[in-house]
Design a protein around this nucleic acid. Structure first.
Lengths: 229, 229
DNA sequence: CGCCGGTTTGACCACCATCAACTCGGGTGG
DNA sequence: CCACCCGAGTTGATGGTGGTCAAACCGGCG
């Protein structure tokens, strides 16, 4: 039996959307609650999909290495998001590696249990479908951005996404800090971190952002939005 | 009641995988069979997802325009493939536009009917989940390729995919012809068609491919595979 | 203090987009 | 039949964007 913290809001978004009490309970009871330290890996790209995770607190980084060895950061996953859903639901090896960027608490399901639940409760299947569909949609968006937009537009988009997902409010604006580095932004944008640094410096000169070590403060989101097209 | 051609193999892959007779019949009976002419559009990017399609014969091109107006070709869909699955299952507007590149025959389901079937038959839900997961996986792959690989590697990959999907055997090798143009290859690779033309010309000089108007013959697939990394 | 990892900046150059000119093949209509 | 055009493809010249490499910077922390 799992002891989930009261603050946990499992009923909004993702797998738990619009479930009746019984179904939600079945889902929750099948899960185990686990805490892991920063830097631990949930799974490796290529592993058999044995577990599905939902982030409760903390932050997970999803990244992928291509054949030539270079890294790509697909995205960060925060509270409420399902990590590993594509692989587990499709029953194929994980397409990426998931690493805790901060200490995390997670709900975990064994692959066979979650598949069984999906089979038994159609609303859960429907939610799973929506979640995976959302992932596909995001990736489609990124493909078109990568082939159509320039570096500045893509970086602006990444910054806005990061701001809304992992940003903290600060006096000057939304602040993106540890564990997100320039390197992460570079890997999310598909450029080198040199280029990221240069572009950010230029934006700082225009008062769009303020920079620091492992820190970007977004001062004027609307100008970023307009750069992002 | 629909009159599907005998040659149609609906039982392999996609939605119909591993279904018992009753379920497969229910799916088939809910579908309508339709033929459309080359150039007709199945749906537009941004439309409400009212219908799901399965290609029976012919070829459909999935493409997307980004905010600045430039086109990206996501992929071609051939016999057996589900067109519109991400949008319909997720109940969100279509992320791309689907146009018949050749005369097509299609199975069509209304959105509400297919959602109802998914709700009623867990194996169908499971198949839907696998299909959408596969789409997500493809797009993840393309994202990493676009950010990590060079133009030649990407184009080699596109050529190999096209060869296996829409290629016809010819004396010299696999032939990719109408309706696939240099422009399509360019949009799939994320470069201009000038660059595609140049790279292909270089490969022709090395006897890897033979070129013609609306025609590429892949002579040495293994060398392309090695360029693709 | 000195190291370490994240970051910045400059110099240089490769790659690819852009634009323009041209080729080629296949209709269509006079 | 030829003239013409059109759309797909090719090729060259040129410039800009962003990658690469080297060096310096900076904030923590042992």
């Amino acid at each position: 039996m799992n002891q989930s913290p009261q603050s946990m809001r499992v009923c909004e978004g993702s797998l738990f959307s619009d479930l009746d009490r019984e179904t939600a309970d079945a889902l929750l009871n099948a899960a185990t609650y686990r805490q892991i330290a920063e830097g631990m890996t949930l799974f490796h790209q290529g592993d058999a999909p044995s577990q599905l995770f939902q982030v409760v607190t903390g932050l997970v980084k999803l990244s992928r290495v291509s054949t030539d060895g270079s890294q790509t950061t697909l995205r960060f996953m925060g509270p409420g998001e399902l990590v590993g859903c594509v692989a587990v639901f499709q029953q194929f090896p994980f397409p990426a590696t998931a690493i805790a960027s901060k200490p995390c608490s997670l709900l975990c399901w064994g692959a066979s249990q979650i598949l069984d639940l999906i089979h038994r409760y159609p609303p859960v299947a429907s939610n799973a479908l929506k979640t995976v569909g959302g992932r596909a949609r995001e990736m489609i968006e990124r493909v078109t951005d990568l082939s159509a937009k320039g570096v500045e537009a893509r970086l602006a988009g990444v910054l806005l996404r990061l701001a809304s997902q992992v940003g903290r409010n600060s006096p000057d604006g939304v602040e993106i800090t540890h564990p997100v580095t320039r390197n992460d932004m570079a890997e999310m944008t598909g450029v080198t971190y040199f280029t990221v640094s240069r572009v950010l410096s230029a934006w700082q000169r225009q008062q769009i952002v303020r920079l620091g070590r492992e820190r970007v403060i977004v001062i004027e989101p609307h100008r970023l939005a307009q750069i992002a097209d």
